[in-house]
């Protein structure tokens, strides 16, 4: 509101100037979320190229093991469950934040972060297991494409967790002000976006990779 008092006297002239005031007051908030959305769309294109590479190389086994021999579907199902549940716990964090309940927000964010860590842990275990069996990224075109795609998704989750921890410190220090709500909204978009990408990873890579 202090902004209003500063600009209003000079704006008393016409509707155009008043309009400018609205732009100044509201757009930064919208601008951040829209800008972040555009970043996510560009990230979509990054994943699209990796999916395209997997679509082209996914059956080039070079005499090595195939997806049907390597993939452990129960493990993937558990990983999928971790990510899906972490999506709804993030939703609970957003609902708590909206109700200005700092404790609830922190609790749900913490649970979300732990679920993300479980996801990453299982994925690293899977990677370690594959490399240990001699099915590392350099074994065949299929495995190169697999490790690039799933590894890039895993890196995104890792950065999501780092962001989440940093944001929890911010929340503890500054509470649920407008800035932190904006940051939470962006992280919420990011986290749900990663879950959307995972839908296609488990469908296209794991489930379809097991089919002959």
């Amino acid at each position: 509101m202090s902004n209003t008092n500063a600009t209003f006297p000079s704006a008393s002239g016409g509707a155009a100037a008043v309009r400018e005031y609205h732009v100044r007051e509201h757009h930064p908030e919208q601008g951040t979320l829209l800008g972040f959305w555009i970043y996510l769309m560009s990230d979509c294109l990054l994943f699209a190229s990796l999916f395209a590479a997997y679509a082209v190389l996914g059956r080039n086994y070079a005499g090595g093991p195939s997806g049907a021999e390597l993939f452990d579907l129960p493990l993937v199902a558990i990983n999928t469950a971790f990510l899906l549940v972490s999506s709804i716990t993030f939703g609970f964090a957003m609902i708590a934040a909206q109700a200005k309940k700092l404790g609830g927000t922190m609790l749900w964010l913490g649970i979300t972060g732990l679920l993300g860590l479980c996801f990453l842990g299982l994925e690293l275990y899977e990677f370690y297991h594959l490399i240990h069996e001699g099915a590392g990224p350099s074994r065949s075109g299929f495995l190169t494409a697999f490790f690039s795609l799933v590894g890039t998704h895993g890196l995104h989750v890792l950065f999501g967790i780092v962001w989440l921890v940093v944001l929890m410190f911010q929340l503890a220090k500054h509470g649920l002000g407008a800035e932190n709500m904006r940051r939470l909204s962006c992280l919420s978009l990011f986290w749900h976006f990663l879950d959307v990408v995972w839908i296609f990873v488990f469908t296209f890579v794991y489930l379809m990779g097991v089919l002959p």
Binding site: E29, Q30, L33, L84, S87, I88, G91, F92, M94, I95, A97, Q98, A178, M181, R182, S185
Partner: peptide
């Protein structure tokens, strides 16, 4: 606030 309203109903339905 950001133009979104976060509701429990939306999240549980979606989940």
């Amino acid at each position: 606030a950001p133009g979104v309203h976060y509701s429990l109903k939306d999240y549980t339905t979606g989940f």
